[in-house]
């Protein structure tokens, strides 16, 4: 069933990246501009640059790229993973032996 225009607008405002408040419309605009990997969309929109580092939105971004471009999902690499695994206070290294 076709959606009412008002609902359509709301859907576009759905936040895909909650940490950085990046909406579906923002992600789609980036894909349409030619940013078609998870890393490229991240660098354009900041989706995945927040506290959770894309753990929540990364897969959804990949799915959106796949749907919009036709690139098979399995060909879309996740964004590069780097330390830390979760946010940690910078005081954590005090009193720890040198690496």
């Amino acid at each position: 069933m076709d959606k009412e225009p008002a609902e359509e607008v709301k859907e576009k405002e759905v936040l895909i990246c909650r940490c950085e408040e990046v909406s579906l419309a923002d992600i789609e605009a980036a894909i349409d501009e030619g940013f078609i990997t998870v890393d490229d969309v991240k660098r354009r929109t900041r989706a995945g640059m927040g506290l959770c580092q894309g753990r929540t939105c990364g897969k959804q971004v990949a799915l959106l790229i796949s749907k919009r471009t036709g690139i098979p999902l399995e060909q879309l690499l996740p964004s590069t993973a780097r330390s830390p695994v979760r946010p940690e206070k910078m005081g954590i290294f005090e009193g720890e032996p040198d690496a």
């Binding site: 506290l51 780097r82 330390s83 946010p87 206070k89 005081g91």
Partner: peptide
Amino acid sequence: TLRQVHFIRTI
């Protein structure tokens, strides 16, 4: 004061 601040990423 930064000991209270979280780090989230390295590059």
